[in-house]
Design a binder for these strands. Structure first.
Length: 472
DNA sequence: TGAAATGTTGGGGCG
DNA sequence: ACGCCCCAACATTTC
């Protein structure tokens, strides 16, 4: 093997297992410098909140432990990536840089700048199928999910044998300067310990014989049930690879007899393809980060009332399912997918707040905040996106609540002030007669807000405003 | 990966 | 026995 040295530039691939960029670095030469650059531009961005940063730092600490067990360590530097990479190349005599590809406009601009002057090779790994590979016959990107998914499934599926094994040893020069990872303060999220070990544990548990994946079809819409994998933060930072999740899901599909159990695994697998779809959309249409995919809505007359936006952010809308979800987000850094749709519909359609305000808030607070998936989800909800919900699809927060949290268990988990509200009123507590409010020790307008808007009216208003924008 | 408005059907009460 | 009304249950249309 060659004596050459290379840099494994780590960005959102915080894992040693199935890491094609790391593999490329190891194949290039004997010495590898695992480098993470704290980019002040990114860390100061309004799209990056303290919770996700803490999760990242937690992940870096655990990656460092994994590296140390293999005779290496994490090299941590602060500064402009181009300057840092140039310095490390010069200091160490490294002659190549390997990195997992990324598709956000920020990442592509950064990587383009680095690649113009430094020997950077970008390696697939963010997705199961390489980004940009799937197009229509004429080369145009797909902008509708179903045909994209169909074309995606034509490609060979990843097999267990395709996964890159975790290297047993990584040789790293001893004299490379690094910030001490322990010097970066962080508060780990209680519900989401970072790292590849935890990610694999969750993936195995979720997809195992008795795993929740088999009940996914029936349970995935119930926010009070742990019916989802809760893997999103780990996928976001590559603590598990998309290919690994696919291999485990396919195993679960093969293992289960035709029926509900198999359907559950199939549906979960389709969610992985939705992730690939939105990553491809951002890759082909970086402008979605700025505005509507569907320009027809560019003239939307948003109301953007700051007080209502704030009430939504703080979980004070008076609609329990919305408020519970917003508090779950603020407290845990995660939100159930069903309630992501409910809260998004409420902000965009009931309050007529520009979806970009919601997108920004979610990005600041979600551990899994990912530009492609988050933008895709918001534009879907707002009806402005690819293959989006039609504008007239307005979620009724009370109906949704009764349907998906019938007993109000999720509501009461995050809204302790509603703990003693009887089941009959839990979805619409403003209907409680005064004496019941007294018994429940919950006074509407005092201990819990009255609805900030009447949904029936809001719905009609949304239909009118959207219709006007769509020019029909 | 909705919901409301509107239409249709059929059973039962009643004069 | 019959028509009429009411309304629940379901289906279809519309936003």
């Amino acid at each position: 093997m060659s004596e050459r040295t290379s840099i494994w530039w780590i960005r959102r691939d915080l894992r040693l297992g199935d890491n094609q960029a790391l593999q490329a670095a190891l194949e290039y030469g004997t010495r590898v410098i695992p480098l993470f650059v704290i980019d002040p531009l990114l860390w100061a961005s309004s799209y990056v909140g303290p919770k996700r940063l803490a999760f990242l730092v937690d992940g870096l600490r655990r990656l460092d432990s994994g590296l140390r067990e293999r005779g290496s360590r994490l090299i941590l530097r602060r500064g402009d990536p181009l300057a840092v990479l140039s310095a490390v190349l010069a200091e160490t005599g490294a002659t190549a840089i390997f990195s997992e590809e990324d598709v956000s406009p920020f990442a592509r601009k950064r990587d383009g700048r680095v690649r113009r002057t430094l020997p950077l090779t970008l390696i697939p790994g963010l997705t199961i199928q390489p980004v940009g590979l799937i197009t229509k016959k004429n080369g145009d990107p797909y902008s509708v999910y179903t045909p994209f998914g169909k074309a995606w499934k034509q490609l060979p599926l990843p097999q267990a044998g395709d996964l890159v094994e975790t290297p047993s040893r990584i040789e790293t020069p001893v004299d490379v300067e690094s910030l001490a990872i322990s010097s970066i303060p962080y508060e780990p999220a209680a519900d989401f310990p970072a790292g590849e070990w935890e990610a694999l544990r969750r993936l195995e548990q979720f997809t195992a014989g008795e795993g929740a994946i088999h009940e996914y079809e029936q349970q995935r819409d119930l926010p009070a049930v742990e019916g989802t994998s809760q893997l999103s933060p780990y996928l976001r930072f590559g603590m598990v690879s998309a290919r690994q999740t696919a291999v485990f899901a396919l195993k679960a599909i093969d293992r289960s007899p035709a029926g509900k159990a198999r359907q559950g695994a199939q549906t979960w697998f389709n969610e992985l393809i939705w992730r690939e779809f939105f990553i491809n959309i951002l890759y082909h249409f970086p402008r979605v980060r700025q505005g509507n995919f569907n320009k027809k809505y560019d003239g939307m007359k948003w109301i953007n009332d700051p007080a209502q936006l704030k009430a939504w952010q703080e979980g004070r809308t008076g609609y329990p399912i919305v408020d519970a979800a917003m508090r779950q987000l603020a407290q845990s850094g995660w939100m159930h997918n069903r309630t992501r749709m409910i809260t998004a519909s409420f902000l965009v359609k009931d309050l007529l707040v520009d979806w970009r305000r919601g997108e920004a808030w979610f990005m600041q607070h979600l551990l899994d905040g990912d530009p492609a998936a988050n933008n895709g989800g918001w534009q879907w909800s707002a009806g402005t996106g690819t293959d989006a919900a039609p504008y007239f699809r307005v979620f009724n927060p009370v109906t949704q609540s009764k349907k998906f949290d019938p007993k109000g268990i999720y509501i009461k988990l995050w809204l302790p002030e509603l703990r003693d509200v009887p089941a009959k009123y839990i979805h619409e507590p403003w209907r409680m007669p005064p004496e019941i409010q007294m018994q429940a020790q919950c006074h509407i307008g005092n201990s819990y807000p009255a609805p900030i808007i009447d949904h029936a009216l809001a719905r009609k208003r949304a239909l009118a405003v959207y219709k006007a924008a769509a020019g029909k």
